[in-house]
């Protein structure tokens, strides 16, 4: 009965297999080979690449570094994005202008902006250190000291992607019903009380969505690191994506980089699922029901 419906589903299913499943299955196959610059092709290396990965301290360090970078930048982006959205949600002068202005960083190409930021942070030629000198803070080793370099990557990420948070959260704010605000006003709630008891809880679902989307994107950070620091000084800003790029593209270890990528995919899928569940419990009313 109604078996013909499966025939209609078939074209879409085939496209799905071709576009999504085939590359994934191929990557899995490649990860069990030792394809590299001197052993081209799909031989059978068993789990050798995974065993090698287990002992690759640089990969695990990069994963830990990425976690720190993603969590901290996404949280800061959320706070700033929410604050900016609240600012232009209200009736303020030149509201439309500010809405567009806040979106500009997101609309620029990450590689181009990273080059611009690298110039800004350049300790000899960039404009930032003279400004810091002028205001008495003093020049800082932005790209040549591990801690500062990590902070520089964070700054660029936050600058570039806060507008994305802003956009989603502003859309959420604009869709909120007005009745709860009227009720809060009648009950005499002030702005902080209204925010904590009305706005923030009602924004829970969209907040979780925004944080998750950004967390997924932040976990793939590559361009900023590539252009700004090349993973240095030492390995202090090397993230997983950049490390996989080095192994795959620079060193041409196709099999090994496939194993790294798949493991990374699984870790991220599990981690983001857990984060999503935790955020839903914390931020969305009725999510436990």
């Amino acid at each position: 009965m109604y078996r013909q419906k499966y025939i209609f589903l078939l074209p879409g299913l085939l496209v799905l297999i071709a576009v999504i499943l085939f590359p994934l299955l191929f990557t899995i196959r490649v990860s069990f080979s030792s394809w590299d610059v001197y052993n081209p092709g799909l031989n059978n290396a068993g789990g050798a690449m995974y065993a090698r990965m287990w002992e690759d301290a640089r990969y695990w360090e990069a994963l830990w570094r990425l976690s720190l970078l993603s969590v901290s930048t996404v949280l800061i982006q959320y706070v700033l994005g929410f604050a900016l959205a609240l600012l232009v949600w209200r009736e303020i002068a030149a509201r439309r202008f500010f809405r567009v202005l806040f979106l500009v960083p997101m609309m620029t190409t990450p590689v181009v902006m990273s080059v611009i930021w690298r110039t800004i942070f350049h300790e000899s030629l960039g404009p930032l250190n003279p400004i810091l000198n002028a205001i008495g803070i003093g020049a800082q080793p932005w790209l040549s000291q591990p801690g500062f370099a990590f902070a520089a990557v964070m700054i660029v990420e936050i600058w570039q992607w806060t507008p994305f948070m802003f956009l989603l959260l502003l859309a959420g704010l604009l869709s909120l019903p007005s009745e709860p605000y009227l009720a809060a006003k009648v009950d005499g709630a002030g702005p902080i009380r209204t925010f904590l008891s009305v706005t923030f809880p009602m924004m829970g679902a969209i907040s979780v969505g925004a944080i998750l989307i950004r967390a997924i994107e932040a976990s793939k950070i590559m361009e900023t690191v590539y252009v700004l620091t090349s993973g240095g000084p030492g390995t202090s800003t090397e993230t997983v994506s950049y490390y996989i790029y080095i192994r795959g593209m620079r060193d041409f270890q196709i099999g090994y980089s496939a194993a790294l990528s798949l493991t990374y995919l699984i870790i991220m899928a599990v981690a983001l699922t857990l984060i999503a569940k935790a955020l839903m419990r914390l931020m969305v009313r009725g999510a436990n029901a």
Partner: peptide
């Protein structure tokens, strides 16, 4: 030699660790 990229990438990473004081 074959794999020169990998050899040099490894060398650069090691030198960078010494440069940064790691």
């Amino acid at each position: 030699v074959p794999g020169v990229g990998e050899f040099m990438s490894s060398l650069a990473a090691g030198v960078a660790r010494a440069q940064s004081g790691e």
